[in-house]
């Protein structure tokens, strides 16, 4: 464990908590893409299949459990409890166009052709594009509530911090995981224009408005 990965995990946890609180407190999931939340639930499910079979550390097990429970709770809140506030008119990204290519790619490019490894690889590829429906929704509505932009900033920062973690691990432990690194770079790049808008607007107290 290193500081980059720890802060990254905490940023990830913060994002998930911000989203759950936003939906629970405002009793509304307006401006949130349910499609992205479904993809995140798929990402954690396929990545943490070894949750019950492999023990890495108490921290690792607890965090995996929290991510899985929180992602399903978010999907439940959006599609069941606060279904009436779900913006299905704007949340129209075809996630099958993300699921199928990621699955095919995980069959073609992986480190080991076993169920666990292919599922882990699939979850890495899928996570890199899972935010697309959310970014698509924000671009369609042209704006985002500030709480939603804080959620996105924390979520985007987590993987950016993981990039620093991989640099550190390469230098300090001569360890690298190319599939995770390439996917992590793609994932972080997708947030770049959002990061720009967040830093130039939201941090100055303005609403996040996308140029129409």
């Amino acid at each position: 464990m290193n500081i980059f990965r720890l802060v990254g995990d905490l940023s990830h946890l913060l994002a998930i908590i911000i989203l759950l609180l936003k939906i629970w407190k405002t009793r509304s999931c307006a401006g949130i893409s349910g499609k992205s939340q479904i993809l995140f639930a798929v990402v954690y499910t396929t990545r943490y299949l070894d949750l019950l079979t492999t023990y890495v550390s108490a921290y690792n097990t607890v965090m995996k459990f929290v991510f899985i429970v929180a992602s399903y709770a978010t999907v439940y809140l959006m599609y069941v409890k606060f279904r009436a506030t779900y913006d299905h008119n704007h949340d129209t990204f075809r996630i099958e166009f993300l699921l199928v290519p990621c699955f095919i790619l995980s069959l073609l490019i992986n480190h080991e052709f076993t169920v666990l490894e292919v599922m882990w690889t699939f979850s890495i590829y899928l996570e890199s594009v899972a935010i697309l429906p959310q970014l698509f929704l924000v671009s369609k509505t042209g704006e985002a509530e500030s709480i939603t932009s804080h959620y996105l900033f924390a979520l985007g920062s987590y993987r950016a911090l993981y990039l620093l973690n991989w640099v550190y691990r390469y230098m300090a432990e001569d360890h690298y995981e190319l599939i995770a690194i390439v996917s992590g770079v793609v994932q972080t790049v997708l947030y770049c224009d959002f990061f720009y808008l967040y830093i130039t607007k939201v941090l100055k107290g303005k609403k996040l408005q996308l140029p129409a």
Binding site: H175, E177, L178, A180
Partner: peptide, 10 residues
């Protein structure tokens, strides 16, 4: 080289 998987990461 890849020392083991990055499975210790979340």
């Amino acid at each position: 080289d890849r020392k083991g998987n990055a499975k210790d990461e979340l």
